[in-house]
Design a protein around this nucleic acid. Structure first.
Length: 153
DNA sequence: GCCAACGTTGGC
DNA sequence: GCCAACGTTGGC
């Protein structure tokens, strides 16, 4: 099993919406590094949901991967903001995965809080200039974030 | 293949 | 709204 962190702007798609929807196609990712991480995802992988570009950026809860990676259909939709004419259903360029809601963290783990935790010091999210929307987490980082969020597995 | 210009992300 | 830190594009 692997651990991941995905970023989302809550004004666009929040963990509250994910709780209502129950599952979501995590699509629209248009960065090759992030895409490659999506392609490594497998069912049962665990995912921390992170809210960015909001009042208190931070980790807000948990989801799980419930599908194998598949072609991102938004790339083939001319009307979609993530439309990419280079991608075709026969030769898809971008990938997506289905995520299922698991839980909210009882306590939000803010970005500033992460910066003060030694177990999270090496986390890719904290590296300067990192803008990836999908990141791998080590088991230790995953566990530390759950603990800071007062979530017991 | 180089690199300047441009666009985007995201914290503050 | 500002700006740093990217990634991407396209002329050459």
């Amino acid at each position: 099993m692997h651990f991941w962190l995905v970023k989302t702007e809550p004004t666009t798609y929040s963990i509250d919406t994910l709780r209502k929807d129950r599952t979501v196609s995590w699509d629209g990712v248009r960065n090759y590094q992030a895409r490659n991480f999506i392609r490594q995802m497998k069912p049962h992988d665990r995912v921390i949901v992170y809210h960015s570009s909001c009042e208190t950026p931070g980790a807000v809860g948990l989801a799980a991967v419930v599908s194998a990676p598949f072609a991102d259909a938004t790339a083939h939709d001319r009307g979609d903001p993530h439309y990419d004419p280079r991608s075709t259903p026969e030769k898809p360029v971008w990938s997506s995965v289905t995520l299922a809601y698991t839980a909210h963290f009882p306590k939000l783990v803010s970005l500033s809080q992460m910066r003060t935790n030694s177990r999270l010091a090496g986390m890719q999210l904290l590296k300067q200039g990192n803008r990836l929307s999908v990141l791998p987490l080590t088991p230790i980082e995953f566990e530390a974030l759950c603990q800071l969020g007062s979530y017991t597995n």
